[in-house]
Design a protein around this nucleic acid. Structure first.
Lengths: 168, 168
DNA sequence: GGCTATTATCTCGCTCAGCGAGAGAATTGG
DNA sequence: CCAATTCTCTCGCTGAGCGAGATAATAGCC
């Protein structure tokens, strides 16, 4: 099967797939560069983004949820949070309702760091959207939502041996 | 500066930024899952994708170019290629024109593996594009191209200490 | 032709992210 | 109150990727 099983036409749809992939690669590259430039690992940045998202959404982030989102086991999460705590980016605190849990809260330094990463990128992306009508942006929104749904579908008979929740 | 410096309106443009980020996360997750399920590391998969792209484009991939694309130093590339070669996915061969170079060629097994990863994903993405007119897909294409350009711009005074080429 | 500078890859030794196994502490349900 | 479960942490280990330097081939200079 060393060739296309279904002779997919390399038309507009395929071009979009390649574009999406290119955007993904580019985002990852920016993230890795930013992380390296600030003495972090890509995983640290991913964790920070997850925690900042949770912070903005008002969700209480725990070690467990972080691990599920990043697909790390508990030992990995412990060393990850140790790392972030050592850098003064997050703070651990026991959950008083369930004292087994460790709540993670981001420090202002983390928020600043997040902004210094996303700020310029967001700025350029918003600028890039300037040449489109609101109707066109709606179309893009519809497409990206559909693409996200398509990408999120798990493989048919693949391995989903993970826990109950997960998913960033 | 623990709050938005420019009070960016959380309008359509921002929603698109979040969607793009979500798509990136989802793609990465799929890649990591696929890699883990096949005894590879995310880096191995990224390398494979790079090599398959080069193969389809007719470019002769070398260890050096692979390292530049993946931001690995030479030692890392050596062990990466060792790994891929051990799995029967790529083959090393000396370039006869410049016998310092090592050309990397993908084995059929790698092509199959690539298809088994991208095939279903592409299928679902193409399906997701079915509900759009060609005009609308053109709009999406324009937007994604613009977004790719925006994401590719290097940070103003950031570190770009890498070599001349790079970029997957 | 040799002779040096440059380029491309590999080897060695090391650091540290993340895993598996299991311990410890708190919760829930009987 | 006791067992089963849940959440996090500790310990020891594997291996990806780095820095430094060795090796080999090429290109430029005289």
């Amino acid at each position: 099967m060393s060739d296309s099983p279904t002779p997919l036409p390399d038309g507009r749809e395929m071009q979009l797939v390649h574009l999406l992939r290119a955007v993904t690669v580019e985002f990852d590259l920016r993230g890795a560069e930013f992380a390296a430039g600030h003495g972090l690992h890509p995983t640290d940045l991913r964790a920070l983004i997850f925690l900042l998202d949770a912070d903005r959404a008002g969700t209480r982030a725990t070690s467990g949820r972080l691990g599920a989102a990043l697909r790390l086991n508990s030992a990995g999460v412990t060393s990850l949070v140790d790392r972030l705590e050592r850098q003064g980016l997050v703070r651990r605190s026991r959950d008083d309702r369930d004292r087994r849990r460790v709540l993670l809260s981001v420090e202002p330094k983390a928020v600043d760091l997040g902004w210094s990463f996303f700020g310029p990128l967001i700025g350029r992306l918003v600028d890039a959207a300037a040449g489109f009508t609101t109707g066109e942006l709606d179309v893009v929104h519809r497409y990206l939502s559909a693409a996200l749904g398509a990408a999120s579908e798990p493989e048919p008979a693949a391995q989903t041996p993970q826990g109950p929740d997960a998913a960033v």
